[in-house]
């Protein structure tokens, strides 16, 4: 049973975030309240770089106001790994996202998401129950593509989930991410994957 709590939040911080989501700026990945510096990124040999894109299917609300997805926030739920609240970095005008590379063995669980419609920013609390298509385990070191996911009620049931039915291509997500990872150990694997997909 997936229930969501939606509430309206106001304030300068939100307006600033909404503005960032809509502009061409990049938002770096966060752990808790702190942005993760590139120097703290795990290595491709022992950690996993998770990336993809998400939108929320807002149905009829799109008819009267502009809908802007902001972010999905994850919790690390494997008790054997370091606890962390993970906010994705947004790239490509907010179309794609990545998480700061995680140690292999980490498990992520989406537990809230934010989006704005018109001038209102919404927060959907997803809870810690159930496993969404986006809740994955970093089982292997290297790149892990989640897909272009849409949070929706796909078949008219009450169950909402993230389905890989979005329109952002992996290649575009990688190209948008590349500048963020320039000069890090991830640059090479990202470039390799871009080459592979460009063939």
């Amino acid at each position: 049973m997936k229930r969501t709590t939606r509430f309206l939040a106001l304030g300068a911080a939100i307006l600033a975030m909404a503005a960032l989501g809509q502009s061409c700026m990049t938002i770096s990945a966060y752990e808790g309240a702190k942005p993760v510096p590139k120097s703290a990124y795990g290595d491709p040999s022992n950690s996993t770089l998770i990336y993809g894109s998400t939108v929320l299917d807002t149905g009829a609300t799109l008819a009267f106001a502009k809908y802007v997805p902001l972010t999905v926030v994850f919790m690390q739920i494997n008790p054997g790994q370091k606890p962390a609240i993970l906010s994705p970095g947004l790239v490509g005008m907010g179309k794609a996202f990545y998480l700061a590379p995680l140690p292999v063995g980490s498990s992520i669980k989406a537990f809230y998401q934010t989006y704005s419609i018109g001038r209102t920013t919404y927060l959907d609390s997803l809870g810690i129950q159930g496993r969404y298509n986006i809740d994955v385990k970093a089982a292997k070191p290297g790149l892990l593509y989640l897909g272009s996911l849409v949070y929706t009620d796909k078949d008219g049931t009450a169950e909402q989930d993230f389905y890989p039915i979005g329109t952002v291509k992996e290649l575009d997500a990688l190209k948008a991410m590349l500048p963020e990872f320039a000069g890090t150990a991830w640059e090479a694997p990202i470039k390799d994957r871009i080459k592979e997909l460009s063939k």
């Binding site: 997936k2 939040a9 009450a158």
Partner: peptide, 11 residues
Amino acid sequence: MSMKKPLSALL
């Protein structure tokens, strides 16, 4: 139908 409760209800 997902349940959406406003903040006011929480408060």
